[in-house]
Amino acid sequence: MKKLITAFGLALLITGCNATTPEKPASMKAQYEVALKNAQAAVEKAAAVDGEWRDIRWKKSKKRYLPSAIKAAEAGDYKKALKLLEIATFQAEAGYKQAMEQKNAGPRF
């Protein structure tokens, strides 16, 4: 029983440590690189069907999630970059989905 409790305690300690240890910048960078590729692919896919939304990368948008993410990563703020890429990817995927759903749009009175 003692052994079981010790093992359980140890497991909890390890899990707890893992949860509280901040991710190493190297792993954040790797995550960012993957997320950037995914976001770029999603944006190109949406643009190919004329479904890109305004705030992803358009030069006159105040938000510009994709270029802002790249800028944040260049400044070493991968956490912010990943958050922005998440929004950019979501918007790109939604834009693509919308364009597909509207493929047969026509007169409706």
């Binding site: 004329d50 939304w53 305004r54 939604a94 919308q98 364009a99 509207q102 749009a105 026509g106 007169p107």
Partner: peptide, 17 residues
């Protein structure tokens, strides 16, 4: 052109129509 006028687009999901 007709499709453009009736197709919803953008984050607000609105068409010209």
């Amino acid at each position: 052109g007709k499709h453009f006028y009736y197709a919803k687009r953008g984050q607000l999901n609105l068409a010209c129509a």
